[in-house]
Design a binder for these strands. Sequence first.
RNA 1: GCCCCCAUCGUCUAGUGGCCUAGGACACCACCCUUUCAAGGUGGCGGCACGGGUUCGAAUCCCGUUGGGGGUGCCA
Length: 490
Amino acid sequence: MSSTSSGTASADPSADRSTRPLRLRFAPSPTGFFHVGGARTALYNWAIAQREGGTFVLRIEDTDEARNQPEWTQGIIDALAWIGIDADDPHFEGPYFQSTYADQHIAAANRLYEAGMAYYCDLTGEQIQERAKASGKQGYDNSSRDRGLEPGPGRVLRFRVPEGSTVVHDLVRGEVEFDNANIEDFVLLRGNGSPMFLLANVVDDVTMQISHVVRAEEHLPNTPKQQMLWEALGEVPPVWAHVPVLVNEQRKKLSKRRDKVAVEQYREEGILADAMVNYLMTLGWAPAGDTEIVPWSEIVEHFRLEDVKHSPAFFDLKKLSAFNKEYIKAMPLDDFVAACAPYLTSDDVPWPREQFNPVVFSEMAPLVQERVGTLAEVIGYVDFLFLADAPIDEAAFAKTMAAADAVAVLAETIDAYETAEWDAEALKETCFAIGEAHGVAKGKAQAPIRVAITGRTVGPPLFEPIVRLGREETLRRLRSALDRIGAPTA
RNA sequence: GCCCCCAUCGUCUAGUGGCCUAGGACACCACCCUUUCAAGGUGGCGGCACGGGUUCGAAUCCCGUUGGGGGUGCCA
C-alpha cells in the first residue's frame, strides 16, 4: 500500500493496465470558452483512442460551483465536434458530469478516513499561515495528523501522506520520483463536506476504469498525490502521460486573460478545423518526413505519446495562418464557396445584405481562394463588388494618384472604356496600351484604375471583376475618382 | 523559498553515438515570374545554452552551471 519506489504497484503500472481495455479521458472544467491547449490535449487522447480502438471519455469537471457555468459545457461539446471529436463516434463516451458523482467521492473519502488514511483538521488558512511563518517553512505542517479530530462543520478531511517516495511512470517523461516528505497532507473534503479536485478526479477515473491519463504538464505535480490516492483506494494507478504546455511569445503558459486562446474565436475568424487540428498536432510532435501538412488519418496512424517532445511549444499565429492558407487552397472550389457563405451573409458584412450576389461571388471565388489566410478575409477581397461605391482607402488613393501620369492614364482609360469591347482581355490591353503611351509599366498603369474601382492598391486580379461590374458602374467609379482628385481631402 | 519539468535556427520541429561541414516547415531577405497582392520557382540568413566528463568518435550518454517553465489553494 505504501508508495515506496520499490512497491510493486508503482513498479510497472503499464504491465497491468495493458491487459485492461484502453480507456482515455478528457476532463475539462467548464470555466470559460474552449482553450486551444485543451483542444490539443483532447486531440492527443482522441488519436490514441481511434487507432487503438480505445474509448475517449468526456467528463465535465464542474465541482467548482462558484465558477461553473452550464452554457460552457455545450461550448466544449461543440468545439470538440468542430475539431472532429464527435460525440456520436463509437470511440466517444459521455459527457459525464463530475458533480453528479459527489456522493461517490465523499464515500471514498470516508473509507479513507475509516481506514486511518485520512484525518480531520480544523486549522483555518490564517492559522496555517501563522504556523508556517513561525516555523519558517511554507504550507501546512501536518500538525493535525494525530489530534484525532472527529468530523465536524468547518473541518477539512486531509489525506495522510505516507513516508517514502512516489515514483510516477510517465509515458512522455519517464520515471519521475517525488519525496513524500515534500508533499503536505492535502485536502480531500472541504470544510463544507464537498470533495476537492484531486479526490474527485481520481474517484471518477477509478469508476470509469480509465487506463491512461493524458493531460497537460501542469498536472505533473499533482500526480504523486493522485497516485497515492489510487493506491490508498486499492487500485492500480493508470498509465500517466504529461504533455508539454502551450506558451505565448513570452514563454508563459497560454492564459485566457492575456492570450487569444479560444478555439471558438479562431473558428469565427475562418480558421478551418482541419488546419487547426493539423497545426495543433505539430506542437510537441511531428509527422515523419519533411511534410507537416498531413491528413488526420495519417496522424492517427503515426502519433505516439512516446514521441511527444518534453519542452513547451509556442502557439504561433503566423504558422497557424500558413497552415490555414494551405488548407484553403486545397479545398475544392465548391467547398470553398460554401464555406465562405456564412461570412458573406452575416450581419457584420459591410455592404447592404440585399446587395450580395452569390453568383458574382462564385465567379470571383477562384481568384480569392488562393489569396486569403482565413475565411473572414474574403470579405475584404470582394466588398467593392457589393458596395454602392468603392471603399476608398484615402492614403492609398492619394499615393496612387500622385504618381506620374496616373491621372492622365485614368482620364484616358475612362474615354477608352466608353466604347471598348467589354471583355477582361480587351479591357486589360486597353489600359496597358494607354500606360505604354505614357511610358508607364503595366503595374503602374492598372494602379489608378484599381484604386478607383476597389478602393485599394491590393486585391484580386482587376479586370475580371470590372467586367462583372459592368460598363456603367465602372465608368461611374472611374469618373468619381477623377472628381475626388480635385476635391480637398477631408 | 521549496518541489518538479525542460533546453537543436527568431518560431515549430527532424535527429535516439559515427549517414550531421545538423535536415524540413513558418517567418524574414534577395532574385525570377507577374496588372497589384498572393501563389509558384531559385537562392540566402540563421541553431545543437555553457563547462566538465565517458568514448576511437557526441546534438545524441553522465555530472555540474546557467537560463526558461510548471507547481506550491478548503481552484481545476
